[in-house]
């Protein structure tokens, strides 16, 4: 039995304050609430379970150290936490000298478009197809559809307007569909490149 992962939402200010004061229970709650989302975000960014688990550790340890300086007025907690995760992912790619966009982009295995379109979507195919997108589209799609963030939460986490996210998600889904080998004429009409 597996509990479904509900979308994360921002904790109440009192809980944040308690965590800032070193309340272990509040820190535990933040960890339990966001651990899966942070891990999934990093998994789809890096494509490596081990790396994602290590970076998830780093995110929460960094969160703990930075919590006393966090101001709730400056940014919602979730957006702030994912900014830490984004920074660490960027550092990881810089230090490992890997190009995120070049990592194992999906290649259709010599199938007809119809056969490719019939292929079931799996997490591995999704990860490979996401790797072939631009960074902004990739992040927008991960947050909107993997982590199930609302439009507003995604905009906050990526520091963009909601309209910008709407555009990113439409173009990103089109590009993703193409990468998954299921692009058809109709969808091309809406791909504004």
């Amino acid at each position: 039995m597996q509990a479904t992962s509900a979308s994360s939402s921002n904790p109440n200010p009192q809980l944040i304050q308690r965590a800032q004061q070193g309340d272990g229970g509040a820190v535990s709650w933040l960890y339990a609430q966001y651990q899966t989302s942070v891990f999934r975000y990093l998994y789809y960014r890096t494509g490596d379970r081990g790396v994602a688990e290590d970076l998830t550790s780093d995110v929460f340890l960094r969160m703990l150290r930075a919590l006393p300086h966090y101001r709730i007025q400056a940014a919602p907690f979730q957006a702030w936490l994912f900014q830490i995760a984004r920074n660490l992912a960027t550092d990881y790619f810089r230090q490992s000298r890997q190009d995120e966009s070049l990592s194992e982009a999906l290649e259709a295995p010599g199938l007809t478009p119809e056969a490719a379109a019939e292929q079931a979507l799996t997490t591995e195919r999704l990860r490979q197809a996401l790797a072939g997108l631009g960074a902004e589209q990739r992040e927008a799609l991960i947050m909107r559809f993997v982590l199930k963030f609302s439009l507003e939460q995604t905009a906050q986490a990526l520091g963009k307007s909601e309209d910008a996210i709407k555009g990113l998600q439409r173009r990103g889904l089109s590009a993703l569909r193409q990468a998954l080998g299921a692009e058809d004429q109709k969808a091309e009409v809406y791909d504004d490149r």
Partner: peptide, 8 residues
């Protein structure tokens, strides 16, 4: 959204 995304 419906995929069984990986868990730590």
């Amino acid at each position: 959204r419906d995929l069984p995304h990986p868990e730590p």
